[in-house]
Design a protein around this nucleic acid. Sequence first.
DNA 1: GTGAAAGCGCTAACAA
DNA 2: TTGTTAGCGCTTTCAC
Lengths: 350, 350
Amino acid sequence: MARKETSKAGAKTPDIRTVAALAKVSIATVSRTINNSPAVSERLAKRVWQAIEQLNYFPNTHARSLVSGRSRILGILVENITNPFFPELIQSFEEIAVAHGYEILVSSTNGDPAVLATCVRRMLERKVEGVAVLSFGAEEPVLDQLTHRDIPMVLAEFRLDDPKVSTILLDYSTGIHAAVQHLADLGHTRIAFLAGPHKLHSAITRENDFRAAIQDSGLTIQKKWIIECDHTLKGGMVGFSQLQELGTRPTAILCSNDMTAIGVLRAAYMAGLRVPDDVSVVGLDDIDFAEFTLPPLTTIRLSRTDLARSAFDALRQQAEDPNNPKIQREYLVSTSLVVRGSTGAPPASL
Amino acid sequence: MARKETSKAGAKTPDIRTVAALAKVSIATVSRTINNSPAVSERLAKRVWQAIEQLNYFPNTHARSLVSGRSRILGILVENITNPFFPELIQSFEEIAVAHGYEILVSSTNGDPAVLATCVRRMLERKVEGVAVLSFGAEEPVLDQLTHRDIPMVLAEFRLDDPKVSTILLDYSTGIHAAVQHLADLGHTRIAFLAGPHKLHSAITRENDFRAAIQDSGLTIQKKWIIECDHTLKGGMVGFSQLQELGTRPTAILCSNDMTAIGVLRAAYMAGLRVPDDVSVVGLDDIDFAEFTLPPLTTIRLSRTDLARSAFDALRQQAEDPNNPKIQREYLVSTSLVVRGSTGAPPASL
DNA sequence: GTGAAAGCGCTAACAA
DNA sequence: TTGTTAGCGCTTTCAC
């Protein structure tokens, strides 16, 4: 064999031709072999694999994508990678995707439609085979780019009337009802809600589900007890202090996400209030941190793995079997209450 | 039933030829135009841009990469995307990269060399132009793949004798010395260190710097007060309880990262100890969360943006100007102490 | 079962 | 300045 490893400068990346030459077959046979085509005799296949090993060869995905029209890249758009919910989600999505031979492109939109537009554009350039839009924003307009190009999509929280678009519905309702019921059972009647930013679909859905849950529990909704925050730690602190300024204060606070709840925990502590003795707090998401707050956070669990799995399945079906008439177009991810230490009976004096 | 042609005016993704035809120029002119070649007359350029706009055309990056040999993709390998330090780092890196027209491929290795090997392979297949190895592990062997292919790399914490490899040194020493001094000034003499897993370079460097700092402060090192943890919340809790079982307990605990410190905060609370009255705690990293713990965490700040910037610069130089003899091969990122609420004087009774 | 050859969409010589 | 053309590394007919 030819020794070309003498110097790094001399070592060229082997290509399919190099392999073919070494194995003494045509490049077509090499291609068939690496694609596991059954039409290759064992004898040749063995020679090819040997050559591949020897050369440490692997195919150039760009060339592959170009000719096959399939990039094996999936995009995932999240709202804010800095919120621990999303890294956990991305991790699951990546694991599944990689296991199926896909690469992923991740982007945070930070809720900014302009950023979203850039991300979509970049993904289009890379010829993604599908995009999971898990940014929860009102970004339908920008998404046109994708639908116009017939790129499969899966959206969290809303439907788009397009055959290439699937939807993942999040059943917050069950978890939120359970949380409100849990609070009611504990004796709470004054329950506040620190909502997420209204530009997020998820925030609005959660808030609506809260209202419904309150009514279903026979309690009454107080407008002043529903405050729009921004799903951040700081936002939770601010929201809490606004609640403290009220004449009649709530004895329990349900938060639109865990970050908000953790902010509340801190603000309560600083205000000299004990959780849950003075005020109960419930989060939503159940990020890994929730178990480690002081006290551990009672929260509504939303499974990142379920969400990631649904997103991947939806995209994969569309990418690999687009003409199947019975493709699943709608997915449901459920939520459930996880009771930990941040909820308890309301102060006796009330 | 439905034909393959879509509704949008028989819309196939436009390619460079479509644009050329519409603008009535050659494809070379289109190529030159989109690449901002000065050799195109304004008149034609205008026609081309118009056609591009009209068709909503953008180039296929796979074709581009194939012919130009440049993918404009950078890889970034982190240890664990679930540790908030990394998303913050990734976000910075992505921002910078995208601003310079690069796409990024992210992977978590979870400290597993086998996973690392897979990631490297995937990146190689996508023809990355450089890889930032910010996983802090002892992964030199696997990295051979990259050096053998002459892929630029930038490594955190260690050097590789290869012209394509740059190094980012993290000056933990300054921050750790400041922290120890801060503790000593407060009156602490018994300072423990909850180390990170020894499989990480960063963990070892941090531990060594701690030992040096203790000696430089004239204090003595107690073997029992240095415990190997794993940089997780749970690890911090475990480490703390081990410390509690000791005959003579430390009055201050310096942790190898913030996650460990936050675990300690929680364990201390559960053990009925107050921070900082009964025990002082210091973290390292200064993740966003650190400001929101109870009490707010005193910690050693390691700037994610500085780290990301250095990593990107190193890679970019290698990718775009590899033959420049005065390429910067070594970068330094500094640390500094951020004093918040988790440190105070040791208990008077001692 | 195997190989020869025609491109995939683009860039970069080289011509004109 | 502009156009023509030869590939980049691969998959995929279509012959054999």
